[in-house]
Nucleic acid binder design. Structure first.
Length: 565
RNA sequence: GCGUCCGUAGCUCAGCUGGAUAGAGCACUCGCCUUCUAAGCGAGCGGUCUCAGGUUCGAAUCCUGACGGGCGUACCA
């Protein structure tokens, strides 16, 4: 249910009726509950252009808006605000209808476009660390969201599987010989050991360099060693994806190395288009308003990240048919993407109608505001972080109740991992955020546990009720009205979040929904004996709709729910 | 230096692209469990939205400048 859109259309119609030209109408949620449910503030802005009194405009608009069974009242307030209040009957009917639909009344886009989302993109030479967390879960949430909205989503895991360090790594892998399964388990250590060998043993270092060259020239022996290495490394990532509930599979992997054969051609095409300039020995493309060029070929002939990115854009547009490409990459790379996008446009790889967006995000900081590191200053491995979250969740559950061992493990996994994801997604992605265990696993405020708790409470009620709730919603009081209205704001929220590529709109929505539910729960008993049947059913349905909505939105974020907590 | 993002309660954060008296959580003070999960709810406390100008009916939001901070600044990814 797109409430805002429907209201906006009604206002547009009214404008037509009073013969006023407007290009865009924006309805906003009421800034205060006393004002109603929604407001339209456009009359004031129009007053000047029309040289009319804003109050008059608002008044004639109000008189022309078709209320139907949707709108209960329209009011002109202050200098020309229009306050809109929806009818209880309409809200009740709509929420009852939404419950009959597995999508909870959210429509599917009927003109889907192909959207490529580039996210996670770990480096195969190293273990995944906290630096990959945000890209992975923000990207995955956006992918899930757009997919749910009906877009045709193509996930791309642009893994870093190429570069000089791989010569060293495969040389070391070879040296250790067969039975290296266990050794590769800790990639971090493997990398360190290999580096140590490289620094200490000239002979080894030379072989490593030789292997780089051999790899690049397609030597079969080296390629096999390398493939073996990448395969193992990728399995580690997949373990993490699975634990995180991230929908990335091998089919989504399009590695850097997959573009190798195209790189020379990219440089050639840039040359042919007259974009290439040689500067300080390197092949560069200069763009307007930037002193630093995009370097596509080093003076030693090697290609760079930028070259691969251009090849990737070409591939995504020409082969995958992408109309919109999202790069979920940290904000430090914004200059890089600005340049790459400009060059891609200039070279014709991304025509004007293709949207290129850098979905940037800030860094993870510790409590003292420094980049999030281990005590000894190293990077925090993602697997360790997740395990700690699960352990902490386990502690919290143990204190509360007696569960079987399996139950505790299962709940702790969902709650712990969910807490990490929710904490990350609930912050405006563009700002840096402070990673705080206590806050994350707290039950208060905008946290995943608060959602889980509300969900579990509802499940508990439904269990006690003993059967699947049926019936119709009939709003009884102000609290129910607010809660139902919030439930119906689901689609508006999803649209907002997907338009802005901003998952925190989802968590903000959930938080306000759950807060309203908790109040409803405290004040409006459902299963008490003296509650009449119809009221009981209505309240049950409202509770059920709340639970379904929580589940759906958490699901988009790749967070599972538990029936008991 | 230049570019870029930011500065909102003691702390962590919202504030939907210019709307009405700037909102939450934590912390602190109080109140509510023989009643559907108190991992909850309610009340209170807390603000010169960094500062100074400007734009206009109206600014935390837009513009200019200052101050403070993050990040990026030619062959790493």
């Amino acid at each position: 249910m797109q409430i805002r859109k429907v209201l906006e259309e009604k206002i547009l119609e009214a404008f037509e009726h009073i013969a006023v030209d407007v290009d865009r109408v924006q309805v906003l949620p009421a800034s205060k509950p006393e004002f109603g449910d929604y407001q339209y503030n456009g009359a004031m802005a129009l007053a000047k252009r029309l040289k009319r009194n804003p109050k008059e405009i608002a008044q004639s608009l109000v008189e022309s808006i078709q209320k139907g069974d949707m709108i209960e009242s329209l009011e002109v307030a202050g200098p020309g605000f229009i306050n809109i209040k929806l009818s209880k009957y309409w809200l009740s009917t709509r929420v009852t209808q939404a419950l009959e639909d597995t999508r909870l009344g959210v429509s599917i886009k009927n003109d889907p476009i192909k959207v490529v989302i580039d996210y996670s993109s770990p480096n195969m030479a190293k273990q995944m660390h906290v630096g990959h967390l945000r890209s992975t879960i923000i990207g995955d949430t956006l992918a899930n969201l757009l997919q749910f909205m009906g877009e045709s989503v193509i996930r791309q895991n642009h893994i870093g599987d190429w570069g000089t360090q791989f010569g060293m790594l495969i040389a070391y892998l070879e040296e250790l010989g067969e039975g290296t399964e266990g050794t590769l388990k800790d990639l971090e250590q493997f990398y360190k050991d290999a580096k140590k060998r490289f620094d200490e043993d000239e002979f080894f270092a030379n072989r490593a360099r030789e292997y780089v060259v051999k790899l690049q020239s397609g030597d079969v022996y080296c390629l096999n060693l390398w493939k073996n290495f990448i395969d193992k490394s990728l399995s580690h990532c997949e373990e993490i994806y699975q634990r995180l509930g991230v929908n990335l599979t091998r089919e989504d992997v399009r590695a850097e190395s997959d573009y190798n054969d195209e790189l020379a051609n990219i440089v050639k095409e840039l040359q042919e288009k007259g974009l290439l300039v040689e500067s300080r020995g390197a092949k560069c493309v200069f763009v307007e308003n930037s002193d630093t060029p995009l370097i596509v070929q080093k003076s030693d002939g090697g290609y760079l990240y930028a070259t691969t990115d251009l090849a990737a854009i070409k591939f995504r547009v020409q082969k995958l048919g992408a109309k919109r490409i999202l790069y979920v990459v940290d904000s430090r790379q914004s200059e890089h993407f600005k340049l790459v996008f400009k060059v891609a446009r200039a070279a014709g790889y991304a025509p004007k109608d293709i949207k290129l967006e850098h979905v940037k995000f800030g860094m993870m900081l510790d409590k003292s505001g420094r980049p999030f590191k281990t005590r000894d200053g190293g990077t925090v491995k993602l697997i360790d972080l997740l395990q700690e979250a699960v352990n902490r969740a386990k502690e919290a559950i143990r204190q509360k109740d007696e569960y079987s061992k399996e139950e505790i493990l299962k709940i702790a996994e969902i709650v712990g991992i969910g807490a990490v994801k929710y904490a990350d997604l609930s912050i405006n992605r563009e700002s840096d955020y402070v990673f705080d265990w206590d806050k994350m696993l707290s039950l208060d405020g905008n946290t995943s546990l608060y959602q889980q708790y509300a969900y579990a409470r509802i499940q508990s009620i439904i269990r006690r009720y003993g059967k699947e709730p049926t019936g119709t919603v009939a709003i009884e009081d102000e609290l129910e009205r607010k809660l139902v209205l919030k439930l119906l704001e689901l689609e508006d929220t999803l649209i907002l979040a997907s338009n802005e590529s901003a998952p925190h709109y989802l968590t903000n929505y959930l938080y306000s929904l759950t807060t309203l539910f908790m109040k409803f729960y405290e004040n409006n008993p459902i299963l008490k004996d003296d509650i009449p049947k119809e009221l009981k059913e209505s309240r049950l349905m409202i509770a059920k709709a709340t639970a379904e909505t929580i589940k759906l939105v958490l699901g988009i974020m790749g967070i599972k729910t538990v029936d008991r907590l």
